[in-house]
């Protein structure tokens, strides 16, 4: 009962803040709404009893990624006049195309997939030990490739940020 009320609370909050991301007239407000929306998705993961994924969602998307977005926006787009940004621009048709395609794909996939959870309504509780076992044995190669990708990005960022003083 109380879980259902909370679920609806989170669902409405996620959709509301997501609308805030789209319709907000200031890009920094949009980024803050994005944090709330992603944190709400993290809350939904808790209902699915995948606490680890929920906390990763808070840590990576709620914390790190949006903080970087905010940092970039604040340093580059700070408008001294405070005039609201325009909601549409010349890229609007392309944005609509991408958005509608993504929506159709997601709806199609979610309707076409036979979800294993349909059998019973009880979600399986997955512990962090199970995740660790699977990640470092069955999915060892993807894990290492992802790490290498991040390392390359990291070194690239350092190269860009480095002051060219000895060349």
């Amino acid at each position: 009962m109380i879980t259902e009320i909370l679920w609806w609370f989170f669902a409405i909050a996620i959709v509301g803040t997501a609308a805030g991301v789209v319709f907000s007239r200031s890009v920094v407000h949009a980024a803050i709404f994005l944090i709330l929306s992603l944190a709400g998705v993290g809350g939904l993961y808790i209902f699915l009893t995948v606490e680890f994924v929920a906390l990763v969602q808070f840590l990576i998307y709620g914390g790190a990624v949006t903080v970087l977005i905010l940092l970039a926006l604040m340093m580059t787009r700070l408008d001294a006049t405070g005039a609201p940004d325009k909601l549409t621009g010349p890229q609007a048709p392309f944005g609509a195309l991408v958005g509608i395609t993504l929506l159709l794909t997601l709806v199609g996939v979610s309707l076409a997939t036979a979800w294993p959870g349909d059998v019973d309504d009880l979600p399986t509780n997955i512990t962090i030990e199970q995740i660790g076992d699977v990640m470092f044995t069955s999915y060892g190669a993807p894990f290492i490739i992802a790490s290498a990708l991040l390392l390359v990005a990291f070194i690239g960022a350092i190269v860009f940020a480095k002051q060219e003083d000895e060349v």
Binding site: A39, E51, F52, L55, V56, F58, L59, G62, G63, A64, V67, T127, I128
Partner: peptide, 14 residues
């Protein structure tokens, strides 16, 4: 929480 330490890291980021 079974993930208490990780929870602390997560909210530290927020």
């Amino acid at each position: 929480l079974a993930l208490g330490m990780f929870f602390v890291f997560a909210v530290l980021g927020l």
